[in-house]
């Protein structure tokens, strides 16, 4: 199968409606709608405990939302009750197919420690998408080069810095030629001096038109790179819009106060 030609490219890379999520009696998400068009870079900001990461994890069903619908690249994910008051994908094959093209980058990198960087990057293309190993290796070398790790492809992740690990994790995500990339606080676990190198890679991806949803605490970065910023507060979208508006002229007092923390 070829990864470069997508049979159908919906103008909406991602469309979710009414996402709710409760942990016990505590409702973390209280009905969230979001649309990302092809090439959109959506930055989700908000205080800790606002539900940002939970929301992101509901998009690929690592977390089961209590209610809502998720449509990825024009395809609705079919859902059924999971027996614990939440919704689970009703077709394992469908959710695996969608996940395989909805690459996720984690806060703590989550590279597979028993595999070299090269092995990490070719794993999903070869094992999940069925790409020829030879082809996957060429592609992986190219991607690792692009994130500045061409000289480290045979190293194991634990021997690298956090910044290098996160750049490798981005290469791993790119290797499945994703419809959209989900970033869960990609720089929060990094030492301050390593944040820049990772943000630079993400910025380059935004410039080449990658569709991305980012949960981030890097306000300057969000302002510069995002096409749309969503401010979550207490499980609701408090405010959303273009970064210039949102950062330059916050409407709600909560957002103004939140942004004040970063001055």
């Amino acid at each position: 199968m070829s990864l470069s030609s997508d049979a159908v490219a919906s103008p909406e890379a991602l469309h979710v409606e009414g996402i709710r999520k409760s942990f016990g009696s505590h409702e973390v998400l209280k009905g969230i709608d979001l649309t990302a068009l092809q090439g959109d870079v959506v930055a989700i900001i908000g205080g800790s405990g606002s539900g940002k990461s939970t929301f992101l994890r509901c998009l690929n069903f690592l977390e089961h939302p209590s209610a809502g619908t998720v449509r990825i690249n024009g395809e609705d994910i079919s859902l059924k009750p999971d027996g614990h008051g939440n919704l689970a994908p009703s077709s394992g094959a469908q959710i695996r197919r969608i996940r395989s093209r909805l690459a996720m980058v984690f806060q703590s990198f989550n590279l597979w420690t028993h595999m070299t960087l090269l092995e990490n990057v070719i794993e999903a293309p070869v094992r999940v998408l069925g790409l020829e190993r030879k082809e996957a290796v060429l592609q992986a070398e190219d991607l690792l080069n692009r994130v500045g790790l061409g000289h480290k492809i045979h190293e194991y992740p634990s021997f690298l810095s956090g910044g290098q690990q996160q750049r490798a994790a981005i290469a791993r995500a790119l290797a499945v030629n994703p419809y959209a990339m989900l970033f869960d606080e990609p720089t929060s676990a990094l030492d301050p001096e390593l944040v820049g190198e990772v943000l630079k890679v993400i910025t380059a991806l935004a410039e080449e038109g990658r569709t991305m949803v980012l949960v981030t605490h890097e306000m300057a970065f969000a302002r510069e790179v995002a096409s749309k910023v969503v401010f979550l507060h207490n499980g609701r979208i408090e405010e959303q819009g273009a970064p210039a508006e949102l950062f330059g002229n916050p409407q709600s007092e909560r957002l103004a106060r939140f942004l004040g923390n970063f001055q």
Binding site: E123, A124, V176
Partner: peptide
């Protein structure tokens, strides 16, 4: 997180076990 990464890339439960959990 390593197991979760496998699931996030669309691996089946058996593939996650064989390729990630058991070697790790």
């Amino acid at each position: 997180g390593q197991i979760e990464a496998g699931r996030a890339f669309g691996m089946t439960g058996a593939a996650v076990l064989r390729r990630i959990t058991l070697p790790a």
